[in-house]
Design a protein around this nucleic acid. Structure first.
Length: 222
DNA sequence: GATTGATCATAC
DNA sequence: GTATGATCAATC
């Protein structure tokens, strides 16, 4: 697939995915379908990136750098309720001096997101799952305020050396959870005395209630 | 059943 | 290890 030249071109090809199954999309793209996602958790996201012409690679940039748009797949059920939290980014545990909500990575990453919902049920094979209507989202004032509030709370705790006391329950719409290959992975952080120590890498995740609200706002459903 | 903590693949 | 893409699965 070619790189989309404009937002309109991207949205057009995204809309064209609606109503197709993952099997149809993969077949058209000539991509093999895994039996399940257990050892291919990012497969749907990579499939959409390929089909929509996102710049490949693991660079820390939006999927469509020239458009400033991030692409995210979103598993939902038939009632359009998200089934999983949405990973946003790895949380920096050091170098936070001078970082504010306005210049932080989470805000940049969520500025413009193309959501591609996939109707998911455990008993429906991957290849038969349907793509729902994709939509381009930017946070409204209310959503940004909620995100900013949670980001500030979590970042404050990190800065104060309390990262190991942060649990998934923190945050109303965004939470901090492990983001690593396994629980033995370590990255550097600072404790409450300012001394460096090694801890589990964490990531910011959007909670289900937040992504569900987006769906309601954009698809006018439920 | 929802939520939190753990985990899988791949590139560099 | 860090960054990309997320879902799995044990526990509450």
């Amino acid at each position: 697939m070619n790189i989309p030249s404009s937002e309109q071109a991207l949205m057009q090809s995204a809309q064209n995915l609606a109503g197709l199954t993952l099997g149809e999309i993969a077949q058209q793209a000539g991509i093999a379908i895994p039996k399940d996602l257990s050892r291919n958790k990012g497969w749907i996201g990579l499939l959409f990136e390929h089909v929509l012409g996102a710049s490949a690679g693991s660079r820390p940039e939006p999927d469509f750098p020239h458009l400033g748009i991030e692409l995210k797949s979103l598993p939902i059920n038939e009632q359009a309720k998200p089934l999983e939290t949405t990973f946003v980014s790895v949380a920096p545990l050091t170098g936070l001096v001078g970082v504010t909500w306005h210049n932080c990575y989470v805000r940049k990453k969520l500025a413009r997101v193309l959501w591609v919902p996939v109707i998911t049920r455990k008993d429906v094979p991957l290849s038969e799952r349907l793509v729902a209507t994709p939509f381009l989202w930017s946070p409204n004032a209310e959503e940004e305020a909620l995100l900013a509030q949670d980001w500030q709370e979590l970042t404050d705790m990190i800065v104060l050396g309390e990262v190991e006391n942060i649990h998934g329950k923190h945050g109303q719409v965004m939470q901090l959870r492990p983001k690593a290959a396994n629980s033995k992975v370590k990255t550097q952080a600072f404790d409450r005395n300012g001394k460096p120590f090694m801890t589990l890498p964490r990531g910011f995740y959007l909670k289900i209630n937040f992504t569900q609200a987006l769906l309601h706002r954009y698809l006018r459903i439920n």
